[in-house]
Structure formats: C-alpha cells, structure tokens
C-alpha cells in the first residue's frame, strides 16, 4: 500500500505544479487583458478564440481564471504563513510550558475553533473593510488553531523524550532544545497541516469572495467570478463551470498532497 500513498502525494504535487505554473505564467502573460470589455462579444460559448468562453462583459474567462489563480495562491501562501507563525508561538509555548499556560492557551484555541471556519473570517472582514489584505489576515487567523494544536501535541510528545531531557541536562538553552531537538520531529506533521490549511484557505477565500466580502475588484477571484456568473447560469453555464473546476482542482491538489504525506509518515512510525 506504500505505493498508493506515494501515488496520492505525486498526483497532488502534479496538480499543484500545473496550477502553480499557470499562476506564475499569468504574472508575465495572459491571452487577453482581464479587464478589457467587449459588449458585442459577451457570453460567448467556449471556442478556439476564447477557450473557456466570455463573461457578461465579454471578458475572456480563461485569462480571468488564470489571473485569479494568482490571487488564490497568494491568499493561500500568506494565510498559511500567518497561521504557521502564530500557531507555532502559541503551540510551542503551550506544549513546552504545559500546566496553566497550556490550559489557558488551549481554551483560547478552543474558543477560536467554536467559530465555524467562515464565520470567524466574516467577523474580521465586517470589522475591517473587505479587501485582499484583510482576507488574507482573516483566513490566516482561521488556520491558527490547527497549527497550534499540531505543534503543541508535538512538543508534548517530545519534551519528555530522553534525548530532550539529556540535552537539557547537558545545559542546552530552551531555544537550542526547541530548534535542534524538538523541531526535526514535528516538521512533517507541520507540513501536512500546512498543505491541508492551504486547501481550506482557498475554499474560504472563494466563499468570502462569492459573498462579496473577500477579494474586491479589480483583483480577480474565482469566488467572485462564480457570484457574477450566477445570474447567467441558464444562458451561459460555462461561465460558472470554469472557476468552480479550478477551485476544486486546487483544493484537491493540496488535499492529496497532505493526505499522501500523512499516510507516508504514519507508515514510518
């Protein structure tokens, strides 16, 4: 069965690589100007000129999907970084110190978890003006609990381990113990958590933007394209299909990567 988890991981990586390449290419080149309107050529079905057709303003959907993939990857990367850094500080403190500190910090994390994903992001974008930057921060906060928990349990597991006690006995500082002795053991669960958080980030960004509370024009986003498409669903179903397929593909890629990595790790232990 080892081959199955390797296969899952590779498939995930392949999908991410494909979409990542598309996002990178969109930095340099897109077939059409994403904001160029053409009222005469609105809602064209997919064809040789417009691979995914055109939207209600005659804009090329393929170019817009490409541009939006850049947004999705940016939001995912920034949100995961925020979640990782904050989650590490909270998780490492709770796990390393234990006792009351742990109890209080984990209850705070529980309180954060009590807000179902998107609700927390909704509060944050209500309080601030919705835009790309706020969206990234809101989604980052959302992914903190996941990282904090993974890192805390890693610290809990290893802080009493013999090699850590031995290092402490030899006079190693807290920082040395954490970085040299504990970290190497919890890197792989963190990578798994990062991969799965990335896919959650993309789903939440899409939902927020769909509701009009996420990425704002002129930044293109898959979620907002979907909400724009909904009025034309009967006339131009392709308009709604392309962004949805890309959201699903990206999320699938990161989920497969995370699952494959986790299975491989579980097999080792």
């Amino acid at each position: 069965m080892e081959s199955k988890s390797t296969l899952t991981m590779r498939l995930g990586l392949a999908i991410i690589a494909l979409l990542g390449t598309m996002a990178a290419v969109s930095l340099l080149y897109v077939p059409y100007d994403v904001n160029e309107m053409n009222i005469a050529g609105r809602l064209q079905s997919p064809g040789a000129l417009h691979w995914f057709g055109t939207d209600n303003f005659g804009r090329d959907i393929f170019s817009r999907v490409m541009e939006a993939s850049k947004t999705a990857f940016l939001v995912g990367a920034v949100a995961v970084t925020i979640g990782l850094v904050a989650g590490f500080i909270i998780g490492a403190t709770a796990g390393y110190l234990g006792g009351w500190t742990d109890e209080v910090l984990m209850r705070m994390i529980d309180a954060l978890l009590a807000f179902p994903g998107i609700l927390l992001a909704l509060i944050l974008v209500t309080v601030f003006e919705p835009n790309l930057f706020q969206t990234m921060i809101a989604i980052g906060v959302l992914s903190v609990p996941n990282f904090a928990r993974v890192i805390r349990s890693g610290f809990f597991q290893y802080k009493e381990a013999e090699f850590v006690v031995a290092a402490r006995g030899l006079g190693a500082s807290h920082a040395t113990v954490i970085l040299r002795h504990v970290m190497p053991h919890i890197v792989s669960p963190i990578i798994v958590a990062a991969s799965l958080s990335f896919s959650t980030a993309i789903l939440v960004e899409a939902a927020l933007s769909y509701l009009g509370l996420g990425v704002q024009p002129p930044d293109p986003s898959w979620g907002r394209m979907l909400s724009e498409s909904q009025s034309y669903i009967g006339k131009a179903p392709w308009f709604a299909l392309a962004p949805g397929v890309f959201i699903a593909l990206t999320v699938l890629g990161f989920n497969l990567l995370g699952d494959g990595l986790r299975d491989l790790r579980d097999k080792k232990t």
Partner: peptide, 22 residues
C-alpha cells in the same frame, strides 16, 4: 470522496440548480 471534499458547496449548489432546477 476526495472530489467531494474539494468542491465548494456553493459551487455545488450552482451546479445542482443548473442540472436539477433549470
């Protein structure tokens, strides 16, 4: 089930409207 996890539910909703509604 991997696919099911990846599809955003609001897009699923749009697709369901398209297929079963329209």
């Amino acid at each position: 089930s991997q696919l099911g996890l990846a599809i955003p539910s609001f897009w699923m909703g749009i697709v369901l409207i398209l297929v079963f509604g329209l």
